[in-house]
Amino acid sequence: MESLVQNILNALQWGSFYALIALGYTLVYGVLTLINFAHGDVFMVGAYIAFFVSTFLLTTLGLPGWGVLILAIPLTMFFTSLVGVTLERVAYRPLRRKGAHRLYVVITALMAGLILEHANLAILGASRKAFPSLIEEQVYNIGGVVFTNLKLGVIFTAAAVFVLLNFIVTKTKIGMAMRAISYDKFAVPLMGIPIDQIIVFTFILGSSMAGLAGLLFAMSYPVLEPYMGALIGWKAFIAAVVGGIGDIRGAFIGGFLLGAVEIMVVAVFPSTYRDLIAFSVLLIILAVRPTGLFGVARHTKI
C-alpha cells in the first residue's frame, strides 16, 4: 500500500516533467502543425540557463537559496523563451514566409536541435555540471510514504501551469486566436488577427514552460549534460501525441500516463525495460487510437 502511494507520487513527478515539455510541442503543433523537434533541446538549454542563473545569483551576488529560486524561476523562463523565439524568428519564420513545404520546417527543427546539443557540447565540454541545491530538501514520512517538498513542488507547479494555460487558451482573446489559427491559418489574418504575434506568443509560452521544466528537473536531478534533452524530449513528444497533439489536456494526460507507465514498469521489471515497455505501450495506443486520446480525426471530404 505504501509502495503504491509512493509509486503514484513518483509517477506524478515524472509525469509533471513530461507534461511541461509536452505542452511546448502541443502548443506549437496546435498553431502551426509543426513538430518542433528542437523543443527537447530547448528544455536542455533551459536547464543550463537555470544552472548559470542560479550559480550567478548564488555565488556572485551571494543571495540565499530561496531568494535565488524566486528570481531564477522568472529569469530562466524569460531566457529560455528568448531561445525559443529566436529559433522561430531565425529558422522557422523565413520558411513559413516562403510557403515552404512543412517537411522542410521539420527538418530545420531537427537540425536546430542538433546544433543546440552539439554547440553546447563544444562550448561547455562533455563534463557534467552539478546543479547547486537551492532549497533545503525536507523529507516527510507519513505512514511509510516518503516524499520531499521538492517533489510536491514539482507536482503542484505542473497542476498550476495546467490551470493557467487552460485558462489562457480557452478564455482569453489571444488563446482563441491561437485556436483559430489551427483551424484555418488563411482566414485568420483576413480577420485582422496579427498571426506572427500569436505565433511568437505561442513559442514564448511553450519554451518558457520548457525552461520551467528544466529548472525543476535540474533541482530534482542535479546533474546536467548536453544530451539530457534528447531522450526526455522525444518521450515528451510521444506523450503529447498519445494525448492527442494540439490539445493541452492531451499533453497533460499523455505526460502523466507516460510517467505512470514508466514507474509501473520499473516497479515490476528491471529498470532497463523501462523505455522498451513505455514505447511499446505508446505504440499500441497509437495503433488502436491513431489520433491519440484527445485528438480529433479530421475526415477528408471527397
Partner: peptide, 28 residues
C-alpha cells in the same frame, strides 16, 4: 501495419517509437 490507419505526424511518431523499441530490445 499502423500505416494502414495512420499518416503523417502520427506515423512519424510510430517510426521513432519503433527505432527506440529495437534499440531497447537489443540492449536487453
Amino acid at each position: 501495419i499502423p500505416s494502414f490507419k495512420t499518416r503523417g505526424d502520427y506515423l512519424a511518431i510510430i517510426t521513432i517509437a519503433a527505432n527506440y523499441i529495437v534499440i531497447s530490445v537489443v540492449e536487453n
